[in-house]
């Protein structure tokens, strides 16, 4: 078959049917999912996966000059394979499957690798177009992939997509998440911002106690009586007991501060001998939000 310059061979999304081999001339392939332009010259094959898997074509192919093509129909493939031994068909399907898996893996890996870039530029509210542009400039990823990532962050309630705008719910949490991912990649271990279950239970009890307390926050700082905290902890810690030892890691992280200095020897005072605890409420809320999101993010991405 022949195509004149400017003629379209097939469009992205058209049902996959034939395979084309370029004999002469040049064609270009463009997909709405990316900015890359594929060029097909003499000897090149067009539409292999669509041909073998009967899937829609993934790009729009336009002749950039007059072209001569060989059209291979599915019937031609069936006839050729009929003449080959059975094991040969297995090899063709193996190669097809492997190419498809490699494509999916690449897409998944691109998405995972693009997330830090997206979090990095989410320093304030943006229009979706600004985000596309910035992440594309920084990491060269498709709009489609950025959209998927934005949707994941929306599902996790990190941001809200409203029409053409993206509203970041809490910039501190985005920053903490970015720092955690950076730390994990650099040191190959759990980031310090990620708390143990016990630490999370204690902080959960602290948050509930602050909410129940009638005292006003002073510049975001709270002070809670130990008596109130232990009462709340009994219900909020699902059977675990609040002791000075369970609260110690949070004191060491300086998320909480005891109202009396703890002795430096090995003997810790009983918790009820410490009158109260204080801390910065927003810091604790942000950290708890990070700890809610962090384990969910990996699942959503993979």
């Amino acid at each position: 078959m022949t195509l004149e310059e400017g003629q379209i061979l097939f469009r992205e999304g058209d049902p996959g049917e034939n395979l084309y081999v370029v004999r002469d001339g040049e064609l270009q392939g463009k997909s709405t999912l990316g900015t890359a332009i594929n060029t097909y010259g003499p000897g090149a094959l067009i539409g292999e996966l669509a041909f073998l898997k009967h899937e829609p074509y993934t790009e729009t192919i336009t002749a950039t000059e007059d072209c001569e093509l060989i059209e291979i129909t599915p019937d031609a493939l069936d006839k050729s394979l009929e003449q080959e031994p059975a094991w040969f068909k297995s090899i063709i399907s193996f190669l097809t499957g492997r190419l498809q898996i490699a494509g999916e893996n690449k897409r998944k890996s691109d998405k995972i690798k693009a997330l830090p870039s997206l979090l990095y530029i989410l320093d304030s509210d943006h229009s979706i177009n600004e985000i596309f542009n910035s992440v594309h400039n920084l990491f060269n990823i498709s709009k489609d992939c950025i959209n998927e990532l934005l949707q994941i962050l929306d599902d996790l309630e990190i941001l809200k997509i409203q029409g053409t705008q993206v509203h970041v719910k809490n910039r501190n949490v985005v920053h903490l998440l970015y720092e955690s991912i950076l730390y994990r990649a650099r040191y190959k271990k759990t980031p310090p911002q990620i708390l143990s279950m016990t630490e999370q239970m204690v902080l959960n009890a602290v948050i509930k106690t602050v909410h129940q307390s009638n005292e006003l926050l002073k510049n975001g700082a709270f002070t809670i009586k130990t008596e109130s905290l232990t009462k709340v902890a009994k219900r909020a810690m699902f059977g675990a007991t609040l002791t000075t030892r369970t609260i110690l890691p949070l004191l060491e992280r300086q998320l909480l501060k005891a109202s009396i200095p703890l002795s430096k020897d090995d003997v810790l005072p009983e918790i009820d001998t410490i009158p109260s605890f204080s801390g910065d409420f927003d810091t604790i809320l942000d950290l708890m939000e990070l700890n809610r999101i962090y384990p969910l993010l990996d699942k959503k991405l993979v």
Binding site: I70, G103, K106, D110, K113, I141
Partner: peptide
């Protein structure tokens, strides 16, 4: 054409695997 198809499937897989390890950034 069938020989070319087999070689193409193989070469494209190889390229995708290599691209997954390289930067996507062109500029």
């Amino acid at each position: 054409w069938l020989l070319a198809l087999i070689r193409n499937l193989s070469a494209k897989t190889h390229l995708l695997k290599r691209a997954a390890m390289e930067t996507r950034v062109q500029n």
